[in-house]
Amino acid sequence: MKIAFYGSSLLSSYWNGAATYYRGILGELARRGYAITFYEPDAFDRQQHRDIDPPEWCRSVVYPATDDGLRSVLAEAGDADIVVKANGVGVFDRELLEGVTARARPGALRIFWDVDAAATLDEMRGDPSHPVLRALPDLDMVCTYGGGPPVIDAYQGFGAAACIPVYNALDPSTHHPVDPDGRFACDLAFLGNRLPDREARVEEFFLRPAAALADRSFLIGGNGWETKDMPANVRHRGHVYTTEHNAFNATPLAVLNVARDSMAAIGFSPATRVFEAAGAAACLITDAWEGIELFLKPDEEVLVARDGQDVADHLAALTPERSRAIGQAALARVKAEHTYALRGAQVDALFRDHFAGKREAA
Rank of each mutant, 00 (worst) to 15 (best):
M124G: 01
Y145I: 14
I164R: 15
G182P: 04
A154C: 04
L195N: 03
R198F: 02
R183P: 01
R208C: 00
D140N: 13
R201A: 15
F205A: 06
P231F: 01
P196A: 13
G148P: 08
V132T: 12
Q156M: 15
V166A: 12
D127Y: 03
D171W: 06
R194I: 04
G159A: 06
R198G: 07
L195C: 00
D215R: 13
P149D: 13
D140A: 12
V142F: 12
D215A: 14
L133R: 15
N193M: 01
A214L: 11
E203Y: 04
N233F: 02
D171C: 10
C186S: 14
D187M: 06
A200N: 06
G222K: 11
V132L: 12
A135C: 12
A211M: 02
G146Y: 07
G147P: 07
G224P: 01
N193V: 08
H175R: 12
Y167P: 05
G126L: 05
P128H: 08
R198M: 15
M230A: 13
P172N: 08
P137D: 03
A135R: 07
L207H: 02
H176D: 00
G126I: 00
G182T: 04
E203F: 01
S173A: 14
Y145G: 05
A160W: 10
D197C: 06
L170Y: 12
H176G: 01
H175A: 09
H239D: 09
P128D: 06
P196E: 04
R194V: 06
P209K: 11
R134K: 14
R198Q: 03
L133C: 11
L136E: 05
V132Q: 01
P177M: 02
L188N: 11
A212C: 07
P172L: 08
C143A: 10
T227I: 07
F190G: 03
P150K: 10
T174K: 06
G159Q: 12
L136M: 09
F206S: 11
H236Q: 14
T174W: 14
A154Q: 12
Q156L: 15
T174S: 15
C186L: 02
V178G: 07
H236G: 04
G148H: 09
F205H: 09
M141V: 05
R235T: 04
T144Q: 05
E123V: 00
E226H: 14
D127I: 03
G148K: 06
D187K: 09
R235H: 03
G182E: 14
G159P: 13
A135G: 07
P209T: 11
R198W: 00
G238K: 12
A189W: 00
V132R: 01
L136S: 09
E199I: 08
S129E: 12
G148A: 12
A232P: 01
R216Y: 07
R134S: 04
Q156F: 08
